[in-house]
């Protein structure tokens, strides 16, 4: 009996500081929840949706799920080479971050940057821009037509062409040469996305 009692008093003694700590925590949390929870105003996107309804759906979905969508898309791109515009980080940046802001490049270190506004507000670490560019950039690409022209003039091409003509049937030879007519897949994907959008409106509403 005595032993039980002593255990009890010990428990009481130990639990007093715990109770103090808990009440302190709950007061802090309560006061936090009582804060003004209005999110900060965000910079306007450069492209706007046709209707407010689609926009609101997009905003609601992305506000809650952007990290999951980006994470999913990231793995799809890195592992499977799927580089469609939907949920691509570059596509987000191209629309949500202006090329210039007050005459300067708008970087993620600036609190006015679309991503940093909220991430700063909720103090969530923004990791993407350690590696990814944080503002729209026009990628300097080597002119495709030029390189094709070079290729057609080149000796290697003539050699390969003659080799193929000598060894392979005409059909394959023409196909092989057509190989060098490269094209912009983005255009293809856009066309395709348009079609699939029509087919499934659910998918399209997220865009």
């Amino acid at each position: 009996m005595l032993r039980i009692q002593s255990t009890f008093t010990r428990f009481l003694k130990q639990s007093v500081p715990l109770a103090v700590l808990l009440s302190f925590l709950s007061v802090t949390l309560l006061s936090l929840s009582a804060c003004d929870s209005e999110p900060p105003a965000l910079m306007k996107a450069s492209k706007q949706f046709d209707s407010d309804e689609i926009r609101d759906k997009h905003v609601a979905h992305m506000r809650k799920n952007h990290m999951d969508e980006l994470m999913h898309k990231r793995d799809e791109t890195v592992y499977n080479g799927i580089r469609t515009q939907k949920y691509s980080l570059n596509a987000c940046i191209n629309c949500h971050v202006p090329e210039q802001h007050n005459g300067e490049v708008l970087r993620h270190t600036n609190p006015e940057h679309f991503c940093s506004t909220c991430h700063g507000y909720v103090a969530a670490k923004l990791d993407c821009f350690e590696c990814h560019v944080d503002h729209p950039v026009k990628q300097p690409t080597t002119s495709i037509s030029n390189s094709i022209q070079n290729y057609h003039n080149s000796k290697a091409h003539t050699e390969i062409k003659s080799y193929i003509q000598a060894n392979v049937s005409d059909e394959i030879a023409t196909l092989s040469l057509a190989k060098n007519v490269t094209f912009d897949t983005n255009e293809v994907s856009d066309v395709k996305t348009d079609q699939s959008n029509k087919a499934s409106s659910k998918k399209g509403s997220d865009q």
Partner: peptide, 11 residues
């Protein structure tokens, strides 16, 4: 032969 897969298909 034109070295491209549809953009939304995995490699």
């Amino acid at each position: 032969e034109v070295q491209a897969k549809p953009a939304d298909e995995p490699i």
